[in-house]
Each structure stands twice: as C-alpha cells, then as structure tokens.
Amino acid sequence: MEDFHWTKLFNPEFYITMEINGVPIGIYMVLFIVFAETGLFAGFFLPGDSLLFLSGIYNRELIETFFIIPSDFSNVIILAVLIAIAATLGNIFGYWFGSRSGNYLYTKEDSFFFKKKYLIDSQVFFEKHGGKAIIFARFLPIIRTFVPIIAGIVHMKKAKFMFYNILSSIMWSFTLVFAGHYLYGFFLDELDIDLKKHIEKIILILIGVTTFPLVMKAIKSRKKETTD
C-alpha cells in the first residue's frame, strides 16, 4: 500500500482516484468536497477549481462508478450536473448556517480551520457586488466558502439567493468540468500530450490563476494601509 502523507489532502487527484478495498469512491469524494467547500466554513482549504478541472479529465472513471455510458459527452454532462447539485446544496447549507448562527463567527477565535479575516474579506466582497457576488465568488477560493454564509447573515431574500446560487453552480461546474475534458482531448489528439502525466503542473497553474485576484487584492489593501 502506498504511504500516505498529509500533503495529499491538497491534491485533487488523490480524491478522484481514491479507492476503499479496491472499490473506487472518487465520485463520492468529489461531490462531498464540492459540498463541503461551498457549505462548510471549514472547507476553504479543500481543492475546488482544480478538483473540477481534473474531474473533467477523469470524467469516465468517475461516472463508471455508477454506470457505463459510451458517450463521452453524456458522461461530462452527468458529472457537471451532479457537481452543480452538490454545489447548490452546499451554498444552501451555508446560507442556512449564516441565517441561524452565522453572527457568532465574528466573535470566534481563529484556528487552523477558521480565519476571521476570510469572513470579513468575504463580507466586503459581498457588500461591493451584492447578489452577483455569489456568482463571482464561485471562481474565487476561500471567498466562495464564506459568501453564502454572509448572504444568510444579512438575510438576503431566499428567492434571489436561490437564483444566483443555481446559476453560479451551473456556470462553475460546467465551465471547469468541460474545460478539463475538452482540453485533455485537444492536447491528446492534436499535440499528443497526455495531461494525466502533468497533473502537478496543471494544479500549480490553476492555483496560480485562481488565487491571482486574491493576491492582487491583498497587495492593493497593503498599499492603501501604508499610504493612509
């Protein structure tokens, strides 16, 4: 059995290819992580965008856990829909948590699983963009974990929240899953490059792309503090 190291917890491929007693459970892990990252405030450290992108690459292996479908397009559609549902449910749980007891987070002490700074940054982001923040947040690590909680805290209208929730879940899921699937096919067929052999590079690129807006925001905030 391959030795386990805690750093694998940050590697999306680890979850996608996970097995228990020889039985693949990758699809269950993907759906749970999507739910947890968007519904549980402790899920901010879990892989999100890179997980969906790699799920598009491994779509056949994931869907074959349930049934075998010859059509690649059908596999990708089913996978994207399942992920969108998990993301929608995750946001609903985050909204519910925020509406019921989210205020206590502002008095909660920092820990490994919770940083008050992330909550405050998400609140500023939400106040700036309103309902559209739910859509923008889907594509921003950490922010997407806390924005639905903020929406619950401020008691955003449920109908409005659900509209942006469902729309953002579909956009996020279909964009990244389809990108992973079709880019994998393009690189393999046109350039004879198997992206499965370059997973670490893909993860680093995706992390860089998705965290760039947050890094720039942090730099701007730092400059503003120094000039005030």
Score class of each variant (00 low, 15 high):
residue 153 I to H: 06
residue 158 K to D: 02
residue 168 S to N: 05
residue 136 F to R: 03
residue 200 E to V: 14
residue 124 V to I: 13
residue 187 F to K: 01
residue 185 G to F: 14
residue 180 G to F: 00
residue 131 G to Q: 09
residue 117 K to S: 13
residue 185 G to M: 14
residue 186 F to D: 09
residue 172 W to Q: 03
residue 190 E to I: 10
residue 182 Y to M: 06
residue 180 G to K: 00
residue 127 E to G: 07
residue 210 T to L: 09
residue 148 P to F: 08
residue 199 I to N: 01
residue 150 I to Q: 06
residue 161 F to C: 11
residue 201 K to F: 11
residue 117 K to W: 02
residue 162 M to Y: 11
residue 210 T to D: 03
residue 149 I to R: 02
residue 156 M to H: 11
residue 196 K to Q: 12
residue 188 L to F: 11
residue 156 M to D: 07
residue 127 E to C: 07
residue 202 I to V: 14
residue 211 T to Q: 05
residue 177 V to A: 00
residue 170 I to R: 06
residue 170 I to C: 11
residue 120 I to L: 11
residue 121 D to W: 14
residue 189 D to N: 15
residue 183 L to C: 08
residue 165 N to M: 08
residue 131 G to S: 14
residue 130 G to T: 05
residue 120 I to D: 02
residue 175 T to C: 10
residue 161 F to S: 10
residue 119 L to Q: 03
residue 170 I to G: 10
residue 130 G to P: 05
residue 165 N to R: 02
residue 146 F to D: 00
residue 192 D to W: 02
residue 194 D to C: 04
residue 131 G to N: 09
residue 145 T to S: 13
residue 154 V to K: 13
residue 153 I to G: 09
residue 166 I to D: 11
residue 212 F to Q: 04
residue 120 I to S: 03
residue 140 L to D: 03
residue 147 V to T: 12
residue 187 F to M: 14
residue 169 S to V: 01
residue 166 I to L: 15
residue 168 S to K: 05
residue 153 I to R: 03
residue 118 Y to T: 13
residue 123 Q to A: 08
residue 202 I to L: 13
residue 133 A to R: 02
residue 135 I to S: 11
residue 121 D to E: 15
residue 130 G to H: 05
residue 138 R to D: 06
residue 153 I to S: 07
residue 210 T to M: 12
residue 209 V to G: 07
residue 163 F to D: 08
residue 208 G to F: 05
residue 194 D to K: 03
residue 174 F to G: 03
residue 195 L to T: 03
residue 202 I to Y: 01
residue 199 I to V: 15
residue 169 S to G: 12
residue 134 I to Y: 01
residue 117 K to A: 14
residue 125 F to G: 08
residue 211 T to H: 08
residue 184 Y to R: 07
residue 175 T to W: 00
residue 209 V to C: 09
residue 134 I to F: 04
residue 124 V to R: 12
residue 139 F to I: 10
residue 200 E to A: 15
residue 190 E to R: 13
residue 158 K to A: 13
residue 207 I to F: 15
residue 156 M to R: 09
residue 119 L to K: 04
residue 206 L to H: 02
residue 205 I to S: 06
residue 170 I to N: 06
residue 173 S to Q: 04
residue 165 N to P: 04
residue 123 Q to S: 11
residue 177 V to S: 00
residue 128 K to N: 08
residue 120 I to W: 01
residue 130 G to N: 04
residue 131 G to M: 07
residue 185 G to E: 15
